[in-house]
């Protein structure tokens, strides 16, 4: 059993009178511990595929299983619980809660999981230390650089030990040096914690870091190859 099984997934959007085919029969299996990049030009269906795997959107047809749970068969509440406990998200534009400090942003997910205050603060500090932001724990997002905000977002995504972290173009708003540091961080977490990462990207640098590269084109898988990562971590 694979961690993620995407079977013959079709996703259509209705745009006025037109039907836009975002995904056209995608079949993918992703195993635990993979560091996978889903690449392709704009409009190829990368973000759509990540949204479907994350249970943010529903398939038109086909099935997606995450940790052996078929997403289209569960309730909205159960989907929300799955996102809380099994899936971590990192967004292109960081998307931290602007009113909360870095520490509180990381604590937020654990608060939703009803982790006691003392325990969640301890774990949030530990994770922020791991991503190199312990000195900025009490700063709010506007007081942090883009790279620092994205590190907080990564910390938020991994703090509760999800089965998979879905990152939608995580380096798109970062300069190449900051982007490389972020990828180093995620690759290290991938190797040390055996945490599964799936990226959508059209950044060649991200593709270089990936151990598996899935190329999408016009909503279909054009290529799927295992490869060596740029860094050994």
């Amino acid at each position: 059993m694979s961690l993620i099984e995407v079977h013959n997934v079709i996703k259509n959007y209705i745009d006025g009178k037109n039907t836009v085919e975002a995904l056209r029969g995608v079949d993918i299996k992703i195993e635990t511990g993979e560091f996978t990049a889903i690449a392709g030009p704009s409009g190829s269906g990368k973000t759509t595929l990540l949204n479907l795997i994350g249970g943010l959107d529903t398939v038109t047809s086909g099935t997606i299983k995450v940790d052996d749970v078929e997403l289209s068969a569960v309730s909205i509440r159960r989907l929300s619980e799955m996102r809380l406990h099994k899936i971590g998200f990192v967004f292109q534009s960081y998307n931290l809660m602007p009113v909360l400090s870095a520490l509180e942003n990381v604590e937020f997910t654990m608060m939703l999981q009803s982790v006691p205050k003392r325990e969640r603060t301890r774990r949030a500090k530990e994770i922020l230390d791991k991503v190199g932001l312990s000195e900025h724990a009490h700063r709010r997002p506007p007081a942090l650089s883009g790279g620092q905000q994205q590190r907080v977002a990564v910390a938020r995504a991994i703090v509760s030990g999800p089965a998979v972290v879905l990152a939608d173009e995580p380096t798109a708003n970062l300069d190449s040096g900051t982007g490389a540091k972020l990828l180093d961080l995620m690759r290290t977490l991938n190797k040390t914690e055996n945490m599964t990462f799936i990226f959508s990207t059209h950044d060649p640098m991200v593709m270089d870091y990936a151990t598996r590269l899935i190329q999408l084109h016009d909503g279909a898988v054009r290529s799927d190859e295992m490869k060596n990562s740029k860094t050994a971590g």
């Binding site: 994350g54 943010l56 509440r77 929300s80 619980e81 799955m82 996102r83 809380l84 406990h85 899936i87 971590g88 998200f89 967004f91 998307n95 809660m97 937020f108 997910t109 939703l112 938020r156 995504a157």
Partner: peptide, 8 residues
Amino acid sequence: VMMAIGTS
């Protein structure tokens, strides 16, 4: 974003 990270 809140819903994406599991907020009910």
